[in-house]
Design a protein around this nucleic acid. Sequence first.
DNA 1: GTCTATAAGTGGATAGAC
DNA 2: GTCTATCCACTTATAGAC
Lengths: 180, 180
Amino acid sequence: MDARTRLLDAAKQLVWDRGVEATSPNMVLARSGVGQGSLYHHFGSKAAWAEAAITALAADLTAETDELFSAHPTGVEQLRAYLTRPRPALDGCRLGRLAFDPEIRADDALRAPISAYFEHLRALLRPAVHATGVDDTDGVVEAICAVVQGGYVTSRLSDDPDALDRACRGLLTLLGIPPH
Amino acid sequence: MDARTRLLDAAKQLVWDRGVEATSPNMVLARSGVGQGSLYHHFGSKAAWAEAAITALAADLTAETDELFSAHPTGVEQLRAYLTRPRPALDGCRLGRLAFDPEIRADDALRAPISAYFEHLRALLRPAVHATGVDDTDGVVEAICAVVQGGYVTSRLSDDPDALDRACRGLLTLLGIPPH
DNA sequence: GTCTATAAGTGGATAGAC
DNA sequence: GTCTATCCACTTATAGAC
């Protein structure tokens, strides 16, 4: 595997695990096993490899989400699949966990791929929610996005991997969608 | 105002704004206007002032939440009040925004006051949710906590202060609780 | 392209005067 | 109690050999 790929893989893992602010160039070097100079040859600055890592993480998650939605024909099945999908509750969402990272706030180029992912997710959820006939489609779409992101937060803060599952199950109950 | 109070106030603001990892002793000094030595006189280490700041933020939020619940007599009114309360969507939850801070994960003493707040919140929500007669009380309680926390996340990532309100409104709709 | 060496600044903490 | 001065490690980045 070439140095650039090893650097990008290391950066993706570290950004997911620690965020951008708390990840140093030395950590990326140590995890990838390449030298100082190579990092600055392939990426001109910290912002450059951070942006590449976030863009790659967003592409991965978008592909997985698209696959999940296209694997189910009806809105109800899509919502059930989205809210029962196994998730790494204690690790956090690859993108959502960056919401309060100071370096994300300071650089719109780092936030843009994340913002685009959530806009894409809303567009997938909207017809599925609309098909259930519920009132306030936009509110329910946002509640679905939020319950997943918030479930990661409460799981992590309570050190309880089940909190996220419980929250998703509770929302499915309110939506009137029975477990499979 | 004495130096200790000025230091603690500065630390509270910075921890809310930037988290623990991204807040340096120098920032606390600059915001409080006291000297280097005073910080280390009143607090022996970064962990010490960070813990004091988090404990104080948790006490503030707990008091506000208790006040909100005790101001409303019925479960339905408590849930409506909790989910329509004005919130600083783009600033984030004082406690929830710390979920993925690496220094919180590394130190249980920093996480404990946050964990205790959420356990207290669940205890306030449980009888209110139970009174609505909904199935799966624990799931719905967790969903309510999660929608608020996740609403902060999606608001911040989309730079849209309305996303949190929309998510809360959608959840109220699903709960069958009409706006006041 | 990849490496080692190094620079300038900051982070967390201590020393010791007043 | 509060202050200034200082320390060592680390962060981000550059220089320049191979």
